[in-house]
Every structure is written in structure tokens, then in C-alpha cells.
């Protein structure tokens, strides 16, 4: 249900094009993206909840250590961890906005990160499989992660926070693209 409401931000590709740019594959009507696509803004919630839970566990463990063994530095460490987490959460919206992907004519482009930037190009013909995973929080929000697997372990491209219906559609489209551009290993 929620997927209809959560793309407004997302420049979804212009609905069924009149004539695809790639005429050699008439069976897959596919238009390459002109712009970067962003992940759903709801993904911010997933990230924030995740970092809050992690921080809470660490802080709780430190406080327990303080109360049981009287480690004097434990409350300070807990405070530092909480501070770092708050700063990280403050930057979270920018980090989520930095995640982008783009279906080009022959390959998928993926980028993420503001401090540590990474940009990957994966030719469709190299995709061995497309994997959809859903974490508990993401599932509650109707989001899914799309993972692309090639023969190289280092490729490691996972597009997080895609609305479930969109993820299914994207998976089918990518599988079809991979099939039509199948190269050897």
C-alpha cells in the first residue's frame, strides 16, 4: 500500500515511453535514466532507528559496566558515543540523499557517501543475480534493499531503501536487461 505515496521525491522514469532508445531490443521497453534516482526518503527512518538502537546498546553496556565494576571512564565513553551518534544522525539526511543510482543504456551506476565517496559502474551483462532483502524496520515501512551480485565479490552494490513494488519491478527489469545483454563470465 504505502508505495504509491512514497515516490513523490523520486524522479520515477517517465511512464511507458513512446519509442525506446534501444531499438534492437523491442521486447524490453527500457529508457535509460537521464538523472540520478534517489532512494526513498523513508529510508532515513531505517538508518536513524538502526543507529539509535546500536548507540543505545553500547551506552547501556557501558553504564552497566560502570554500575557493576565502577569503571570511572565508562560514563564518559558513553557520553562520547552518544555525542558521535547524534552528530552522525544529524548528517544522516545528507548521507541518505547522497545514495543514488542510475540505469544507463548498458550499465548501472551507483554512488553513495559524503565523507567516503564511492561510485561503481556494473554492466548489465555482468549481473549474475539480483537479490531483494528486507530488514525488520524496512519491512514495516514497506522498503527493500536491492543487491547486485557479479562474478567479482568486490562489486558489492546494494541499493537500500527502495519501495517494495518498485524493487520488484526494478528486479524484473534488471534481470531482463541482464538476460538481453548476457555476456560470458
Amino acid at each position: 500500500m504505502p508505495e504509491q505515496t512514497d515516490h513523490p521525491e523520486q524522479p520515477v522514469q517517465p511512464a511507458p515511453p513512446e519509442q525506446p532508445v534501444a531499438p534492437e531490443q523491442p521486447e524490453h521497453r527500457f529508457t535509460p535514466d537521464a538523472e540520478w534516482r534517489r532512494v526513498s526518503p523513508k529510508y532515513l527512518v531505517v538508518e536513524v532507528i538502526g543507529s539509535i538502537i546500536t548507540t543505545a546498546i553500547i551506552v547501556a553496556a557501558l553504564l552497566v559496566a560502570f554500575s557493576l565494576w565502577g569503571l570511572w571512564w565508562a560514563p564518559w565513553a558513553a557520553g562520547a558515543v552518544a555525542l558521535v551518534a547524534i552528530v552522525a544522525i544529524a548528517f544522516e539526511p545528507r548521507r541518505v540523499r547522497s545514495i543514488g543510482y542510475r540505469l544507463r543504456e548498458d550499465d548501472l551506476l551507483f554512488r553513495r557517501g559524503i565523507m567516503f565517496q564511492r561510485q561503481v559502474a556494473v554492466p548489465y551483462g555482468r549481473m549474475q543475480l539480483v537479490d531483494i532483502t528486507r530488514g525488520p524496520v524496512a519491512r514495516a515501512l514497506g522498503l527493500a534493499d536491492l543487491k547486485f551480485v557479479t562474478a567479482a565479490a568486490a562489486t558489492a552494490v546494494t541499493v537500500p531503501g527502495i519501495p517494495e513494488a518498485e524493487a520488484d519491478r526494478l528486479r524484473d527489469e534488471l534481470v531482463a536487461l541482464a538476460e538481453s545483454r548476457r555476456a560470458g563470465l
Binding site: 567516503f116 561510485q119 556494473v122 555482468r126 557479479t150 555476456a183 560470458g184
Partner: peptide, 15 residues
């Protein structure tokens, strides 16, 4: 012809 993918990355120092 057999490259699987290509990545460009930069951490704070490199940037």
C-alpha cells in the same frame, strides 16, 4: 571484455 565492474572512491584524505 571480462571486467566485472569498476569503482571510483575517495576518502577524506584523498578528497
Amino acid at each position: 571484455a571480462r571486467m566485472q565492474s569498476v569503482a571510483l572512491s575517495a576518502g577524506p584524505v584523498r578528497r
